[in-house]
């Protein structure tokens, strides 16, 4: 059964829902009586926090792609590879499968994450262009795949601890690994800061009333 159009929210009823234990309290209660977490009908600072984490994440993602991720020393050569460079190298040696995995995990997914988080925040900020069900779907995607990007850092750690064959071959992690890890952490925090209830506020007739809430007043701060 779909219940759209005539949805009653906790806010409509003058109540506030707890996002941690789902229990309901009357408006103005500071802490949830059941689980003790801080109660807010909507996180008023949500968008500010999202943009702050998003921006730091993006700033870390740039050096993550410019610096080498891995340095491989063999008897004959020393080679340092950036994320994209390493994938291109693998593809040239005919390893198309692995190259594709690396490109998807370390380039496509992070870029898509930045785009989705920005899209969600812009949707709340400027008014939505996409139906709320769809936006919620993208929100869940970002929440789910965010942590999996860390796999790249783990692969670097595994490779460089395993491939230590003295003069024959050794792999050491490059500076990009630190920036990549930071970028993943900051985008996870950006996604976590996004109050998904804001998606649904902008959906129906109350787009206008949402514009009045301080949550959307970040516009001034950011454009400055």
């Amino acid at each position: 059964m779909e219940v759209s159009g005539s949805v009653t929210t906790a806010r409509d009823m003058g109540l506030v829902g707890c996002t941690r234990c789902y229990s309901v309290s009357s408006r103005g209660t500071a802490h949830c009586p059941r689980c003790g977490s801080a109660l807010q009908s909507r996180d008023r600072l949500s968008l500010q926090k999202v943009w702050a984490w998003w921006l730091v994440g993006l700033m870390c993602y740039i050096p993550a792609n410019l610096y080498p991720m891995l340095e491989t020393r063999t008897l004959v050569s020393v080679q340092s590879d950036t994320i994209v460079g390493g994938a291109v190298d693998l593809a040239r040696h005919g390893n198309w499968g692995v190259a594709a995995i690396i490109l998807v995990a370390s380039v496509l997914i992070p870029v898509v994450k930045f785009v989705i988080v920005a899209g969600l925040a812009l949707g709340v900020w400027l008014g939505p262009k996409v139906p709320e069900g769809q936006r919620h779907f993208w929100y869940e995607i970002v929440e789910y795949i965010g942590r999996w990007s860390m796999i790249d850092v783990f692969v670097v750690a595994i490779l460089s601890s395993l491939v230590q064959l003295q003069a024959l071959a050794s792999i050491t992690p490059g500076r990009a690994s630190l920036f990549f890890a930071l970028s993943v952490i900051f985008t996870m925090l950006a996604a976590k800061s996004f109050d998904s209830r804001l998606i649904w506020d902008t959906g129906q007739s109350d787009i206008a009333s949402n514009r009045r809430t301080p949550a959307v007043d970040v516009k001034g701060d950011l454009s400055a």
Partner: peptide, 24 residues
């Protein structure tokens, strides 16, 4: 959905709010 405005006092224990979209 609770169909009408429940008459006060509202029994909050009998309500549940969706953490992701605030539906009651």
């Amino acid at each position: 959905m609770p169909t009408q405005q429940p008459s006060p006092p509202i029994d909050l224990d009998r309500l549940i709010a969706c953490p992701n979209c605030d539906a009651l």
